[in-house]
């Protein structure tokens, strides 16, 4: 997927999620239609535009790991207690995030995207919080399903 056409619908979902939960940043990453690279296509609460330039490989970074495993990933105190080097999590560095919760977006049963929620201080993500994020991820899957061909 190279362009998000339903920008307004995505914006609605992410803005209402941001109102509902307590977070500083929301980002949406999608795997390229052709190839394995993953790019950040949308963000709110961002400090800068770095996310637009970041590309991660399948299996690398938060987005790459979530897409390759198809399971959520939580970081509660970056850069402490993180597997690997801090530079392997570029979105955390770019946005000064200390904690994050990322869930996969599935298209035709295959993980092709990531919805990431981030905070600029340590944060523990409750069950309710995680459920809200997963529900929003489900809504994004519906919005984006027409544009992503697996």
């Amino acid at each position: 997927m190279d362009q998000i056409n339903d920008f307004l619908a995505i914006d609605d979902v992410c803005k209402s999620l941001m109102k509902e939960i307590s977070c500083d940043f929301i980002g949406l990453a999608l795997q390229d239609k052709n190839g394995l690279n993953i790019k950040w296509h949308y963000a709110i609460g961002n400090l800068n535009e770095k996310y637009r330039l970041i590309t991660v490989r399948f299996g690398k970074g938060i987005a790459g790991k979530v897409i390759s495993s198809g399971t959520p990933l939580m970081i509660d105190d970056f850069p402490n207690n993180v597997l690997g080097k801090p530079i392997e999590q570029p979105i955390m560095l770019a946005e000064n995030l200390v904690s994050s919760y990322a869930v996969p977006l599935f298209f035709k049963g295959v993980p092709k995207g990531v919805l990431l929620i981030g905070n600029r201080e340590t944060h523990s993500y409750t069950e309710d919080f995680q459920t809200s994020v997963k529900e929003s991820a489900g809504n994004l899957e519906k919005i984006l399903s027409d544009h992503i061909v697996s």
């Binding site: 770095k50 996310y51 330039l53 970041i54 590309t55 570029p90 770019a94």
Partner: peptide
């Protein structure tokens, strides 16, 4: 570097 960290 730019594509990794988003720094121009």
């Amino acid at each position: 570097y730019t594509s990794t960290f988003g720094v121009i």
